[in-house]
Computed example of a mutant assay.
Amino acid sequence: MAPKPLEEMVRHADHVVVATIESVDMVDGRGKPIVDPRARTGPGSKNQMRFNLRVKELLFTRSPMLPPTLRVPLWTAWHYELGNIQEQVTGSTGIFLLKGDDYQPVYPADFQRPLDERKEIERLLLSR
């Protein structure tokens, strides 16, 4: 997947939050929870991984109100294993660029940004 410029992603974001990934879960194509740490996502699979975020700070939103926790569905074509992603990202904090009422990533790749990009993101938000 080709990277998108940060400026473009910020421009298209409906919500920009500083948040911590409290947990990662997975559901099958019918929404049934999957708990097997070896369960995978990827092309041809209906499994979907989701980040469960705890919002620490709201930098921007188009909504009248944002809940304190958000469930962000990840792109199903990524080749991920549930246990690996849980170990890698649970507890991490970043800036999340999201869109829509269901808090989709603004773009499948690089929608989670490091905290050290905050000043640049805030600058881009002001210039929208």
Rank of each mutant, 00 (worst) to 15 (best):
P3I: 00
P3A: 06
K4A: 10
K4E: 15
P5M: 06
P5W: 02
L6A: 05
L6R: 12
E7V: 00
M9F: 02
M9P: 07
M9S: 06
M9A: 04
R11Q: 13
R11W: 06
H12V: 00
A13I: 04
V17R: 09
V17P: 07
V18S: 07
A19L: 06
A19G: 12
T20A: 10
T20L: 03
T20M: 10
T20Q: 15
D25K: 08
D25A: 01
V27L: 13
D28S: 08
G31Y: 08
G31F: 06
K32C: 00
K32F: 03
V35G: 03
P37S: 08
R38D: 09
R38F: 03
G44E: 12
G44T: 05
G44A: 09
K46W: 08
F51M: 11
N52F: 05
L53V: 08
R54S: 07
R54F: 00
E57N: 14
E57W: 03
L58V: 15
L58M: 12
L58Y: 02
L58D: 01
L59Q: 07
L59F: 12
R62E: 08
S63Y: 09
S63P: 01
S63M: 13
P64M: 02
P64S: 09
M65F: 14
L66R: 10
L66D: 13
P67H: 13
P68G: 09
V72E: 03
L74H: 03
W75T: 00
W75H: 13
T76N: 09
A77T: 05
H79G: 04
H79A: 12
Y80R: 05
L82T: 03
G83P: 11
N84I: 10
I85E: 14
I85S: 04
Q88L: 15
Q88T: 12
Q88F: 13
T90R: 14
G91R: 05
S92Q: 15
T93I: 05
T93R: 15
G94V: 07
G94M: 05
F96T: 02
L97T: 06
L98M: 09
D102I: 01
D102C: 00
Y103C: 05
Q104I: 00
Q104A: 06
Y107L: 00
D110T: 05
L115V: 07
E117F: 02
E117C: 01
R118K: 15
K119F: 01
K119R: 14
K119M: 04
I121G: 09
E122R: 13
L126E: 12
S127D: 11
R128K: 14
R128V: 06
